[in-house]
């Protein structure tokens, strides 16, 4: 593998800087939320990671389709990178949501549509990696992976829809708290922290995907060398 391209090095540095700024904005710049207190500061990272996790899911489904059409291994590497990075971020989203829900709603977990869909999506990601692990042939692995991300990409929005529709008919105990949170008004400084977090996590996401793609091409190289040596 060639040494790191300069653009990637720059992106690394930029990622660290935006993460630092975003942390500062979330921790010190944004005012304390009155109802929920300090824990509300977790919200900025929660939204940032959720956005990136969703973005990765869409990217994965799209590159899955692109792989099936073009049969170009680069799309497969892109897809794996998107899924893996999203798995990490979605895990964070769920944990942060849980940490936030505990003091705000007095429960670690609610079967709210967003939380549940996030959890189901995370399970789809994990199933995706288990599927890939069980296949030796790289070409077949890529094909099956692409098909599965496509299925997941179609199923996840329906899951969200299903749970939301049912919740609107059957209001649950946390419904009130939920509505409160929906109304959570953001003042100017909060909005700055909010949008900067979205931006920061997008940059970090791109940086990590890039690294994961490079790792993927290393993996492919090892696989090819192994084939050559064993022949």
């Amino acid at each position: 593998m060639q040494s790191k391209p300069i653009a990637l090095k720059i992106l690394d540095v930029v990622s660290i800087i935006v993460l630092a700024i975003s942390t500062y904005l979330a921790l010190f710049f944004a005012p304390t939320e009155l109802v929920m207190g300090q824990v509300q500061r977790v919200f900025y990272f929660h939204i940032g990671t959720a956005w990136v996790g969703m973005l990765g899911f869409i990217i994965a489904a799209v590159s899955g389709v692109a792989y099936l059409i073009t049969k170009d291994m680069r799309w497969d590497r892109f897809e794996v990178a998107a899924v893996e990075v999203s798995t990490v971020f979605f895990f964070l989203t769920i944990v942060l949501g849980s940490i936030w829900a505990r003091p705000a709603w007095n429960t670690w977990w609610t079967w709210d549509p967003r939380l549940t869909t996030a959890a189901v999506t995370e399970l789809i990601y994990i199933a995706y990696f288990m599927l890939r692990q069980g296949i030796d042939d790289p070409e077949k692995r890529a094909r099956f992976g692409a098909v599965y991300t496509l299925l997941g990409g179609v199923s996840a929005p329906i899951t969200f829809m299903v749970i939301r529709l049912f919740r609107t008919i059957h209001p649950v105990i946390v419904g009130a708290a939920n509505a409160n949170q929906e109304k959570m008004s953001m003042n100017g400084d909060m909005k700055i922290a909010f949008f900067f977090a979205l931006f920061a996590f997008t940059v970090i996401f791109v940086d990590l995907i890039w690294h994961r793609i490079r790792l993927g091409s290393l993996e492919d190289k090892v696989e090819q060398l192994k084939l050559k040596v064993s022949m």
Partner: peptide, 8 residues
């Protein structure tokens, strides 16, 4: 305003 800094 509750003190929730531990969670944060």
């Amino acid at each position: 305003t509750p003190d929730t800094s531990t969670y944060m």
